[in-house]
Write a protein that binds this DNA or RNA. Structure first.
Lengths: 200, 200
DNA sequence: CACTATACGGAGCAACGCTCCGGTTACGCA
DNA sequence: TGCGTAACCGGAGCGTTGCTCCGTATAGTG
């Protein structure tokens, strides 16, 4: 039987026990460190907290973005999956969009520096950017399209642009906002501006 | 009557000739480097371009922000000074606000990374933040107040917040924008959202 | 011309991202 | 059970950056 390669690796590729253990330790350590020092925390710190060397961290997560994605994957998936529910529960499509956007802002605002990292040109963060766009833009688009369909908002703005703008509005904002700036309010205002006819 | 265009040297202690020469060289070099490598360009590069040592750059501009401010001071002052003219020329106060904001966006978008640096938590950039706010917020406030006075826009947004939001919307945007994202459009939409009654 | 306050330059330190390779270990197989 | 090897681990080390510090050079003055 020449083509039994599947027998070698029943599920995907089973990794060694120590490798799996380290990956989990890294994930836990990263989540903790991100909370206190933001997603820009030094790699050495995360490695130390997980009790592993730096080589290990880079083997499991070649780019910093891979680690960030792994840590926040669940939340991002949940947000994306929630879009249809928002559409069903809200009174109007544009209300659903506004509410979903609010959740998106909630997510970004509770992660130190995530919004900033998202817009980074740095190649190491490229994958992060790609992942977020890949998951969230379609979800946003479904709400946006529904609102356009209902003629509630102008149609010359696409989901990617809107997400980009909303993400930018969250940059530099922390959960314990002590300044007058309020990302929720600003995103709300942006969406209010969406309820207009296209520019003259 | 001393026109304030050259507010330097007469009262304070006169510096040595070589010091003044180096300062000018630094300013010119920084302007050139900022154009090509953005405001985050390595200090060494600027020093090298100016033909001076690193000690010199830090002596003249203790924090990076001081250098950035010095380079862009004229443009910022001009923008601030232009606000009354916009108010006089536009058909409505809110139109003046929109037009002035557009100029603000123009300014940010043509400076690599300036918008990003502006929101930086980094202590070295604190002075930059302070300077921009100090100069531009009052100008913006005059337009904003006029629009509020005319009952054209909601009154629960202050100038600082609006500037902050507009600045954020410009982050990561370059003049030669190849993406679909358009800072002008987004800021315009934000201001459109301002023409609403406060949230329900 | 000599003297001193002023300014200059770059070596040096610390922090960081990332790579690379010798040593270690888990795991299948006999 | 014992063994061989592929997979994995750790951290020394390189390159880059921000910023400081101090011995040296010089502009301006009497």
């Amino acid at each position: 039987m020449p083509e039994v390669d599947a027998a070698l690796t029943p599920p995907p590729a089973r990794k060694r026990a120590d490798a799996r253990r380290n990956e989990q330790a890294l994930l836990a350590a990263a989540a903790a460190v991100f909370l206190t020092h933001g997603v820009d925390a030094p790699v050495r710190v995360i490695a130390a907290k997980a009790g592993v060397g730096m080589g290990t961290i880079y083997r499991h997560f070649p780019a910093r973005a891979d680690l960030v994605v792994a840590v926040y994957r669940h939340q991002v998936e949940a947000l994306a999956a929630a879009a249809p529910r928002f559409l069903a529960d809200a009174t109007t499509p544009s209300a659903a969009l506004a509410q979903w956007m609010d959740k998106f802002v909630d997510f970004l605002v509770t992660k130190h520096g995530l919004a900033g990292a998202l817009r980074s040109e740095d190649s190491g963060f490229q994958a992060l950017h790609a992942y977020f766009l890949d998951r969230l833009v379609p979800a946003c688009a479904s709400l946006l399209d529904a609102a356009v369909e209902a003629s509630e908002i102008r149609r010359d703005i696409d989901a990617l642009t809107l997400m980009h703008a909303a993400g930018n509005l969250c940059i530099g904002v922390e959960a314990g906002g002590e300044t007058s700036y309020n990302a929720h309010k600003m995103v709300g205002m942006l969406i209010a501006g969406l309820r207009q006819s296209p520019p003259a």
